[in-house]
C-alpha cells in the first residue's frame, strides 16, 4: 500500500512544477520588485517601502480604485436586476413561458465575443460625430444633439458599465436559472395555497434560497470586475481619459509598468490590488458561510 501511495507524488508533480515556475515564482518576484526601483532594464535597487508609501498617497490609484468600483457596481446592480427579473418571469408557474432556450442563448451571446472586439466595436459605434448609435438615435428623434459618450466622465463610465451589463447579464441569468430550477416545487405550491402574491413568492422564497448562488455570482463578478482592463484600455487612448474616469486599477498598473517603465512601483500597485481583492473576498466569504448555516439547504 505504501508503495502505491507514493504514486500520488507522480500524479501531482507536473502540476506543481509548472505551478511553481509560472505562478508562484512570478508572484514572489513581483513582491521583490515592489521594494525596488526597477525600470525594466539594468539593475534593480532596493528602496525599502518607498513604493508602498507612494501607493498610499497616490491620488491616481485611489481614483482608479473608485472608478473600478463605480463601473463594476453599476454594472453588477443592472446585471443582477435583469437576471433576477428574467428568472422571476421564467420561473413563474402561472405564466409558463415558452422559448426559454432561445432567449437564454440570445442573451448569452455577447458574453462569448472577445472583449477586445467588443471594445473596438463599441468604440466606433459610440463615436461622437459619426458613430452609428448617435446616428440611429437622431434618426429616431430620441436625441437632437449627438452625445459624446466617451468624452464625459459620467457617460463614459456609464457606457462601460452598460457594455459590461450587456456582456454579462445573460451569463448571470443562466446561473440564476440553474439555481431556481434546483429549488423544490413544493415551496411554490405551498406559497400558492397560502395565497402569496408574485412578489412575496419571489422575495420570501426564491431570493433566500438563491443566496449561495447569488454570492457565487458576486464573488466571481467582483474578482473579474476588480481586474477590469481591456475595455477601458481599448475604448480610450489607453490612459483612461476622459478626466481619468476610465482609469482602472489594472490599467494603471499596465501604464506604470509598460508605458512609463516604473516596474517597481507597478509591482506595488499589483500588491495593493491583491490586498483589496483579499479584503473584499473575505467579506463576501464571511457573508456566505455566516448566512449558509441559517439556510435550509442548497447544494
Amino acid at each position: 500500500m505504501k508503495n502505491i501511495n507514493r504514486y500520488g507524488y507522480f500524479f501531482i508533480a507536473p502540476f506543481w512544477l509548472v505551478f511553481l515556475v509560472f505562478s508562484i515564482y512570478p508572484v514572489a518576484l513581483t513582491f521583490y520588485y515592489s521594494f525596488t526601483n526597477y525600470t525594466g532594464s539594468g539593475e534593480a535597487q532596493l528602496v525599502g517601502l518607498a513604493n508602498y508609501k507612494r501607493l498610499l498617497t497616490d491620488t491616481y490609484f485611489v481614483e482608479a480604485f473608485f472608478n473600478t468600483w463605480k463601473i463594476w457596481g453599476v454594472n453588477f446592480a443592472l446585471q443582477m436586476g435583469l437576471a433576477l427579473i428574467l428568472a422571476m418571469i421564467f420561473s413563474d408557474m402561472r405564466i409558463k413561458l415558452k422559448g426559454i432556450a432561445f432567449f437564454r442563448s440570445i442573451f448569452y451571446l455577447p458574453n462569448l465575443i472577445t472583449i477586445s472586439s467588443v471594445a473596438l466595436l463599441f468604440g466606433i459605434l459610440l463615436d461622437w460625430q459619426h458613430g452609428s448609435l448617435n446616428m440611429m438615435l437622431m434618426k429616431l428623434g430620441i436625441i437632437s444633439d449627438p452625445i459624446n459618450w466617451l468624452n464625459e466622465p459620467t457617460s463614459a463610465q456609464l457606457s462601460v458599465s452598460l457594455i459590461l451589463t450587456w456582456m454579462w447579464f445573460g451569463h448571470s441569468f443562466i446561473v440564476v436559472m440553474a439555481g431556481v430550477s434546483g429549488i423544490s416545487k413544493d415551496y411554490y405550491e405551498a406559497a400558492l395555497i397560502d395565497g402569496a402574491n408574485r412578489w412575496q413568492t419571489f422575495s420570501k422564497i426564491t431570493i433566500p434560497l438563491l443566496k449561495p448562488i447569488l454570492l457565487y455570482i458576486m464573488i466571481t463578478s467582483l474578482i473579474g470586475g476588480l481586474q477590469l482592463f481591456d475595455l477601458p484600455m481599448l475604448l480610450t487612448d489607453g490612459i483612461g481619459s476622459p478626466d481619468g474616469s476610465l482609469n482602472t486599477m489594472v490599467l494603471y498598473l499596465y501604464n506604470q509598468a509598460f508605458k512609463y517603465n516604473n516596474y517597481g512601483y507597478a509591482a506595488a500597485v499589483a500588491y495593493g490590488l491583491f490586498v483589496i481583492t483579499l479584503i473584499f473576498s473575505a467579506f463576501i466569504f464571511k457573508g456566505m458561510y455566516g448566512k449558509e448555516r441559517k439556510q435550509p439547504r442548497q447544494v
Binding site: 460625430q129 459619426h130 448617435n134 437622431m138 437632437s144 444633439d145 449627438p146
Partner: peptide
C-alpha cells in the same frame, strides 16, 4: 463632411 453641432447637422 457632416458636422452635428448645436442641434443641427
Amino acid at each position: 463632411i457632416k458636422v452635428k453641432e448645436g442641434g443641427k447637422e
